[in-house]
């Protein structure tokens, strides 16, 4: 049983009144606990693919399945299970965290969702649960009453991770989770992600243009260019021995010390 599946899924946006295919018909299967990197440049369609997996954009044709259930056309009221099973960490915590909410409200919000409340399979947002969520990502319970602006960039991204994990999901999408952070704090956030993914046996889709972090965190990689998967396979095979010119260009452009 797969956790996520795209079957000939295509996404079309409208750009300046014209239809624009962001993702051409694509087949992807992600198994429970599997870690998959999705790499490509800006505008390649990698984020669109991730959003499709979470039901955040509808396919213009084809199907998107989660837990073997189609999520296409499902009304929001019937997506509660999906919202609890799948979470996302965004690139920039400055814009993904509401600046007017305290950490306790930010982290607890997924548990207050009306489609999740009182279902029994997710915890109640009690002070103990919220404190535990912050401590789990290396912050302290006394920070619950702080606002995002009182934190450093790395701490903010930890809050975003705590929020993504509090509903105890089985699938996590991390969209460029460290590229807005200083090199000096990236390692800590990546260590945290690695630990959480290991301990919870999460299926992970890591969207990034940084091949080094994909190599570090993922087993399999999909290379996306202009809405097509141009190459895929085991991380070491693809990145050490790229076959497609686009993969080659990405490998060549990666800087290291």
């Amino acid at each position: 049983m797969s956790i996520v599946e795209l079957r000939g899924a295509e996404v079309t946006y409208r750009r300046a009144g014209q239809p624009f295919v962001a993702l051409h018909p694509t087949d992807v299967v992600i198994e429970p606990g599997e870690r998959v990197g999705v790499v490509g440049g800006s505008g390649s369609g990698k984020t669109t693919m991730a959003r499709l997996m979470l039901g955040l954009v509808p396919p213009s044709q084809g199907d998107a399945l989660f837990d073997d259930r189609s999520i296409v056309g499902l009304p929001e009221r019937q997506r509660g299970w999906l919202r609890a099973r799948a979470s996302m960490v965004f690139q920039d915590p400055n814009s993904s965290l509401n600046p007017r909410m305290k950490l306790r409200d930010i982290v607890g919000e997924p548990l207050r969702s009306p489609v999740l409340r009182n279902r029994g399979d997710v915890p109640e947002p009690t002070p103990e649960v919220l404190a535990g969520a912050l401590e789990g990502v290396g912050l302290t319970a006394e920070m619950l009453d702080r606002y995002p602006h009182q934190l450093s960039g790395g701490q903010r991204q930890r809050v975003a991770i705590a929020r993504a994990l509090i509903s105890d999901p089985a699938f996590l999408v991390a969209d460029e989770p460290v590229s807005a952070l200083d090199v000096s704090v990236r390692a800590q956030v990546l260590n945290l992600l690695t630990d959480e993914v290991n301990e919870r046996s999460l299926a992970l889709v890591l969207v990034s243009h940084d091949l080094a972090i994909v190599r570090h965190l993922c087993e399999r990689v999909l290379v996306v260019e202009r809405g097509h998967i141009v190459e895929q396979g085991a991380v070491a095979d693809v990145l050490d021995n790229p076959q497609h010119p686009y993969t080659q260009a990405l490998v060549d452009a990666t800087l290291s010390l």
């Binding site: 090199v183 000096s184 390692a187 990546l190 260590n191 690695t194 290991n198 010390l257």
Partner: peptide, 22 residues
């Protein structure tokens, strides 16, 4: 030293703990 060690993600075995500036 920490800055350089933490930037060398490619020198760490995949999945192993990355050194950080701290």
């Amino acid at each position: 030293q920490g800055l350089i060690a933490s930037a060398r993600i490619d020198r760490v075995q995949p999945g192993e703990r990355l050194p950080s500036v701290a």
